[in-house]
Deep mutational scan, measured.
Amino acid sequence: REWTEQETLLLLEALEMYKDDWNKVSEHVGSRTQDECILHFLR
């Protein structure tokens, strides 16, 4: 499923705060797994 604008904003926000702590990043996004966050980030 597609990422919403809100999810993408949360991802970018989390990356600024937590860098590459993907566990914390995915918790911050809330609706995505670590793997989904990493894959989206790599696009």
Results as ranks from 00 to 15, higher is better:
36 E>G: 00
34 Q>S: 11
21 D>S: 09
9 L>S: 13
30 G>N: 08
42 L>I: 15
29 V>C: 02
9 L>M: 13
32 R>T: 03
17 M>I: 09
33 T>S: 08
16 E>Q: 07
13 E>I: 01
2 E>M: 13
36 E>M: 00
27 E>V: 03
10 L>S: 10
36 E>L: 00
8 T>P: 00
33 T>K: 11
26 S>F: 01
12 L>K: 13
37 C>F: 05
1 R>D: 14
36 E>F: 03
22 W>V: 03
33 T>V: 04
25 V>K: 10
32 R>Q: 05
28 H>S: 01
24 K>S: 09
35 D>C: 09
2 E>V: 14
34 Q>F: 09
35 D>F: 06
4 T>L: 06
29 V>M: 12
2 E>R: 13
38 I>G: 15
1 R>T: 14
11 L>W: 02
26 S>V: 12
14 A>C: 01
22 W>K: 04
15 L>Q: 14
11 L>S: 01
7 E>M: 01
34 Q>D: 09
1 R>A: 14
27 E>I: 06
27 E>N: 09
5 E>P: 04
39 L>W: 06
8 T>V: 10
38 I>L: 12
35 D>E: 09
3 W>I: 06
40 H>V: 04
2 E>D: 15
27 E>C: 04
34 Q>H: 11
11 L>Y: 05
3 W>G: 04
15 L>H: 15
35 D>H: 12
29 V>S: 00
24 K>R: 12
22 W>L: 02
24 K>E: 13
24 K>T: 10
16 E>L: 01
6 Q>E: 03
29 V>Q: 02
35 D>Q: 15
26 S>E: 12
5 E>N: 05
32 R>V: 03
19 K>Q: 08
31 S>H: 09
20 D>E: 09
23 N>A: 13
5 E>A: 07
38 I>F: 10
22 W>F: 04
20 D>G: 10
9 L>G: 13
31 S>E: 12
20 D>Q: 14
6 Q>H: 06
14 A>S: 07
22 W>E: 01
22 W>A: 01
12 L>C: 05
5 E>D: 02
23 N>S: 12
26 S>R: 13
33 T>N: 13
38 I>R: 15
2 E>I: 15
26 S>H: 12
11 L>N: 02
7 E>V: 01
1 R>Q: 15
26 S>W: 03
11 L>M: 05
42 L>Y: 13
8 T>W: 07
25 V>R: 05
21 D>T: 05
27 E>Q: 06
19 K>G: 06
29 V>E: 01
33 T>H: 07
23 N>W: 08
5 E>I: 07
33 T>R: 13
5 E>V: 07
13 E>W: 02
40 H>A: 09
4 T>K: 13
16 E>R: 11
28 H>W: 08
23 N>F: 11
10 L>A: 04
26 S>P: 04
18 Y>V: 04
7 E>F: 00
37 C>L: 00
21 D>W: 03
30 G>L: 02
32 R>G: 01
13 E>A: 09
9 L>V: 10
39 L>A: 13
21 D>G: 05
4 T>H: 05
18 Y>P: 02
36 E>H: 07
9 L>K: 14
40 H>K: 13
28 H>Y: 07
39 L>E: 14
15 L>Y: 14
22 W>R: 01
12 L>S: 08
23 N>I: 08
35 D>N: 14
10 L>C: 09
21 D>C: 10
30 G>T: 09
1 R>H: 06
28 H>K: 06
16 E>K: 09
31 S>A: 10
32 R>N: 00
39 L>D: 15
27 E>A: 03
41 F>L: 03
40 H>W: 08
24 K>C: 08
9 L>T: 14
36 E>A: 03
37 C>I: 15
42 L>Q: 15
13 E>M: 07
8 T>G: 13
39 L>S: 12
30 G>I: 08
9 L>W: 08
7 E>N: 00
24 K>P: 03
39 L>Y: 08
29 V>I: 00
39 L>T: 14
17 M>A: 07
1 R>W: 05
4 T>A: 05
25 V>I: 14
15 L>F: 07
16 E>V: 03
1 R>V: 14
19 K>I: 06
7 E>S: 00
38 I>Q: 12
15 L>G: 09
20 D>T: 04
2 E>Y: 15
41 F>A: 13
31 S>C: 09
8 T>Q: 14
7 E>P: 01
41 F>D: 15
2 E>C: 03
7 E>C: 00
14 A>E: 01
19 K>P: 09
28 H>I: 06
4 T>D: 02
32 R>H: 04
24 K>D: 04
26 S>A: 14
3 W>T: 07
34 Q>I: 09
25 V>L: 05
6 Q>F: 07
5 E>H: 08
27 E>W: 03
1 R>L: 12
25 V>Y: 01
24 K>M: 14
1 R>G: 13
34 Q>G: 11
42 L>D: 15
28 H>F: 04
32 R>E: 03
15 L>T: 14
22 W>D: 05
34 Q>N: 11
34 Q>W: 02
36 E>D: 10
41 F>C: 04
42 L>V: 14
28 H>R: 06
33 T>Y: 06
31 S>L: 03
17 M>K: 12
10 L>V: 11
8 T>A: 12
7 E>T: 01
5 E>L: 04
19 K>M: 05
36 E>N: 02
28 H>N: 00
10 L>T: 07
7 E>D: 02
34 Q>K: 14
21 D>Q: 08
16 E>P: 10
16 E>Y: 02
36 E>W: 00
23 N>K: 11
28 H>V: 05
28 H>C: 04
41 F>M: 11
8 T>N: 14
30 G>H: 01
4 T>C: 01
35 D>M: 10
30 G>D: 09
25 V>F: 05
8 T>C: 10
30 G>A: 09
42 L>G: 15
26 S>L: 06
30 G>E: 12
